[in-house]
Write a protein that binds this DNA or RNA. Structure first.
Lengths: 243, 243
DNA sequence: CGATAGTTTGATCCGCGTCAATTCCAGTGG
DNA sequence: CCACTGGAATTGACGCGGATCAAACTATCG
């Protein structure tokens, strides 16, 4: 991140005062301090946003749909994916609360967005959202920070997709999950399917399954239930991740 | 691009007047109008920048070096790459004049940058560059637009790396080159090596070479010299690119 | 023209995809 | 509480695309 936390929320001279309302579906209370809105703490700007819910598997929008709206996730998990003409799919990322989507192109969405778990989002008309950028430079800064973070993640993923073996891909995936989850006894509840994981890692479901079994037999992880992973040797996973 | 050209350079109310000098190595004249600098037309902000040149093959910085500086390319081509511990390489992108690099992380560079051709750049101390962001919101807007464009490109590349065959990758690469070069008789001069192309497409030099030969035999392209490509059937390339 | 790096081509091998068959499990109804 | 059911996950057998190893060829630059 080349925009550190200290900068986000730092009162720049050019920022003016404003009011912000509470979004009816946001649990997180928006923050309005000295003319600066911290989107870290308030992903949803209620004045011009409308709430919506999605069930698991529901599609928010498809690749190539007209990009009329911009969204932020307030709860649950979404997956973004792109398709080839014959149906091969690549999942480019998973979104969590606070993430934005639909910004990349003004014309049409460049990926599909589908709910992995039940999801709550805030919807903004694109024009209104762009208006917010003008009003609130801090929002722009936060977006820039997020874009930089996502770009870094995308480059790591390119390395994985272009150069890593199946075992390294799965080990990387698990190690990253473990790192992100923090210390919860190394237990990770994963709602996505093997197909989602496979499409994210650029391999097949069969290979995901085989590789998980192999990692289990090597004592690096345990899989009590298909969607529950237990990290037994984090260092071993990192060592197996290739980089 | 979700920040259209019209917005870049739009005079925001909060922007103040400033002076800007001509960079001694920039050929493009910086533009100072009504307190707004259009980085599209002036990638180099001379007041706080220093120029530098790189020969082909010279390394600007390595992955994991302390990220003390930020750069913009003013001429030539750079390649960005990431390494695995055993030396496998992934090229994440090629940079052209006007592109920025070194912004992603405040701590250390997350990729190596190496000159593909002789290159001229402008160097900024990181802190000074971040200061510019505060001063010139238009610069921030432009960066945000670029970040969005790069993110979209990265997602396309993830689809390529995760799901396309070798033939589709090479066809995609050539079709994109042809599209970007515009109508120059379909002739493309490429300074990068087969290894660079291979590391960009996530395959080996041998496979690049074989695939190029195959495309040539199929009458889609011609290769008078190793670094000169002639597009004979653009539509055929697009058809062979998979998406 | 010789030296050297880059490119092409060939032969072989293997990791992972493909196809197919169970097995597992969450949800449903009896 | 248990049998039933359909989708998800696992496991197995086999083949292929592209990696690897090796050698010949060809640009480019002193």
């Amino acid at each position: 991140m080349w925009l550190n936390k200290a900068m986000v929320g730092h009162p720049a001279a050019s920022v003016s005062r404003f009011d912000i309302h509470r979004c009816e579906i946001c649990e997180v209370r928006p923050l309005a301090v000295c003319g600066v809105v911290s989107i870290e703490q308030s992903p949803c700007l209620a004045a011009i946003a409308r709430g919506a819910r999605l069930e698991s598997g529901e599609v928010l929008f498809h690749e190539d749909d007209p990009a009329k709206e911009v969204f932020t996730v307030t709860s649950g998990m979404l997956k973004l994916s792109k398709l080839l003409s014959d149906g091969r799919r690549q999942v480019t990322g998973f979104l969590l609360p606070g993430d934005y989507l639909g910004l990349a192109s003004a014309e049409r969405y460049i990926y599909s967005a589908e709910a992995v778990t039940p999801v709550r989002i805030c919807r903004f008309a694109r024009a209104a959202f762009l208006g917010l950028l003008e009003q609130f430079p801090a929002l722009e800064k936060a977006l820039l920070g997020r874009a930089a973070t996502e770009l870094a993640a995308a480059q790591k993923q390119m390395l994985l997709l272009g150069r890593k073996t199946a075992r390294e891909r799965v080990a990387t995936f698990l190690a990253e999950l473990a790192a992100r989850a923090g210390n919860q006894g190394g237990v990770i509840e994963l709602s996505m399917t093997r197909t989602d994981i496979a499409d994210y890692l650029g391999i097949t479901t069969e290979t995901v399954s085989r590789t998980l079994t192999s990692l289990r037999k090597d004592g690096l992880i345990d899989i009590p239930r298909p969607h529950l992973f237990k990290i037994l040797q984090y260092s071993g996973l990192v060592a197996a991740s290739g980089d």
